[in-house]
Design a protein around this nucleic acid. Structure first.
Length: 109
DNA sequence: ATGCTGACCATGT
DNA sequence: CACATGGCCAGCA
């Protein structure tokens, strides 16, 4: 069922620690989602139970409609934005980038 | 099936 | 920064 995907995505989003943010692409990758778009669609439809506000776009900005709420919630967690843009270099969820880079094929090459 | 939309991403001009 | 192009995938009329 596709519900697996929803579960995976929501699970990953829940995993994002406070004071940190992740991009849709990261969540998509960690959740095995076929594409970052799916993350957005799932959150829009069924993301009320997860800290969706910790998910930003790849360039550190948030979607227009939720921007206000997102910025407010993030600010409350210590994630400050500059002109509506978050400094990914500072606040990006390290574990996400790690998991991506942690792909360590032992005996190949 | 086709066409459009959407909380996306990257690159180029 | 704005805009255009191409790729991505699911849901709906």
């Amino acid at each position: 069922m596709d519900e697996e995907l929803h579960e995976q995505i929501r699970d990953v989003v829940r995993k994002i620690p406070s004071g940190r943010v992740a991009t849709y692409g990261d969540v998509a990758d960690l959740s095995r989602a076929p594409s970052p778009r799916l993350v957005g669609q799932v959150l829009n439809h069924d993301g009320h139970d997860v800290p969706w506000h910790r998910v930003l776009r790849a360039n550190g900005t948030c979607a227009p409609h939720i921007a206000e709420e997102q910025l407010q919630r993030l600010a409350a967690e210590g994630v400050l934005s500059n002109d509506g843009k978050i400094n990914l270099h500072t606040y990006r969820w390290e574990d996400a980038a790690k998991a991506k880079s942690e792909d360590d094929p032992p005996s190949l090459f």
